[in-house]
Amino acid sequence: LQLFIKTLTGKTFTVEMEPSDTIENLKAKIQDKEGIPPDQQRLIFAGKQLEDGRTLSDYNIQKESTLHLVL
């Protein structure tokens, strides 16, 4: 599923993930694309901070959802 990642600077980029992927996987993918170390990434969806060990489906993140990346 394609997700939109929006940064505080207003930049938006996309990543391609599976619902079974963990937040950790997502942070690694963001590191590949943007060079931001996972330990500096905080991801927010629907007002909640996402925890590394959980999956996208745990948070009911669907295709074309927008996640906010806070550094």
Score class of each variant (00 low, 15 high):
Leu43Cys: 01
Thr66Asn: 05
His68Pro: 02
Glu51Cys: 04
Pro38Gln: 10
Gln2Trp: 12
Phe4Thr: 11
Ser65His: 06
Glu18Ala: 14
Glu34Asp: 04
Glu34Cys: 05
Ala46Lys: 13
Asn60Gln: 14
Tyr59His: 03
Asp52Glu: 14
Leu69Trp: 02
Leu3Met: 04
Gly47His: 07
Thr9Ser: 15
Glu51Leu: 09
Gly47Leu: 03
Leu69Tyr: 02
Gln62Ser: 14
Pro19His: 15
Asp39Gln: 07
Phe45Tyr: 10
Asn60Trp: 05
Arg54His: 09
Leu3Cys: 02
Asp32Ala: 14
Ile44His: 13
Gly10Asp: 06
Pro19Tyr: 10
Ile44Leu: 09
Leu71Tyr: 14
Pro37Phe: 06
Leu71Gln: 09
Leu67Cys: 01
Gly35Asp: 06
Glu24Tyr: 15
Leu3Ile: 15
Lys27Asn: 01
Thr9Tyr: 11
Glu34Gly: 08
Leu50Cys: 03
Arg54Tyr: 11
Leu8Arg: 11
Lys48Thr: 08
Gly47Ala: 04
Asp58Glu: 07
Gly47Ser: 06
Arg54Val: 06
Val70Asn: 06
Lys63Ile: 13
Asp32Ile: 15
Ser65Thr: 11
Gln62Gly: 14
Ser65Gln: 07
Leu26Trp: 00
Val15Tyr: 04
Leu67Ile: 12
Gly53Tyr: 15
Ile44Val: 13
Gly47Val: 02
Gln31Met: 15
Phe4Val: 11
Leu67Asp: 01
Thr9Leu: 10
Phe4Asp: 03
Lys33Cys: 04
Asp52Ser: 07
Lys48Ser: 06
Leu50Gln: 00
His68Val: 15
Tyr59Met: 04
Ala28Ser: 15
Pro38Val: 12
Thr12Asn: 11
Thr55Ile: 14
Arg42Met: 11
Leu8Ile: 09
Asp39Ile: 12
Phe13Glu: 01
His68Met: 12
Asp32Ser: 10
Tyr59Pro: 00
Phe45Gln: 03
Ile5Lys: 00
Ile30Asn: 00
Gln40Cys: 04
Ser20Trp: 14
Ile44Arg: 06
Thr66Pro: 03
Glu64Cys: 05
Ile30Phe: 01
Lys27Gln: 02
Gln49Trp: 07
Lys11Tyr: 12
Ala46Leu: 10
Ser57Ala: 12
Leu43Ile: 14
Leu56Gly: 02
Leu43Gly: 00
Lys33Tyr: 09
Lys27Ser: 01
Thr55Glu: 04
Lys11Ala: 14
Asp21Gln: 13
Ala46Thr: 05
Gln31Phe: 15
Gln2Ile: 08
Ile30Trp: 00
Leu43Arg: 00
Lys48Ile: 13
Ala28Cys: 04
Val15His: 02
Gln2Asn: 09
Ser20Gly: 12
Thr22Gln: 05
Thr66Gln: 06
Asn25Trp: 12
Glu64Leu: 13
Glu51Met: 14
Ile30Leu: 04
Ile44Asn: 05
Lys48Leu: 15
Arg42Glu: 09
Arg42His: 13
Pro19Leu: 08
Leu67Pro: 03
Lys48Val: 11
Leu69Asp: 00
Leu26Asn: 00
Arg54Cys: 04
